[in-house]
């Protein structure tokens, strides 16, 4: 199965990259753009056919390595 994983900064954590992009969008004329947040997207092939088992493995990957849960949230979908 393929896991598609998003890692994003938690609400309230300052995101200077997001702020810089927001200012750039503003200067390009996108006046409606607000609250830009930069995150990470990862794809992982998991050699597992059982969706529940794959989900448990991906959850552990996120908790142990892919996200630092002090400042980041993660979500994933399996296909």
């Amino acid at each position: 199965m393929k896991a598609k994983i998003h890692v994003t900064l938690k609400q309230g954590i300052l995101d200077p990259q997001g702020k810089a992009i927001e200012h750039a969008l503003d200067s390009l004329g996108f006046k409606n753009a607000a609250n830009v947040r930069v995150g990470k997207y990862m794809e992982v092939d998991v050699n597992e056919t059982d969706a529940a088992k794959a989900a448990e493995q991906v959850k552990q990957m996120c908790e142990k390595l892919l996200a630092n849960t002090v400042i980041e949230d993660y979500r994933y979908e399996l296909q």
Binding site: I13, L14, P16, Q17, A20, N68, V70, I71
Partner: peptide, 10 residues
């Protein structure tokens, strides 16, 4: 304890 974030100035 804690984490490092990107410098505010980038």
């Amino acid at each position: 304890p804690g984490v490092m974030l990107r410098n505010t100035s980038l």
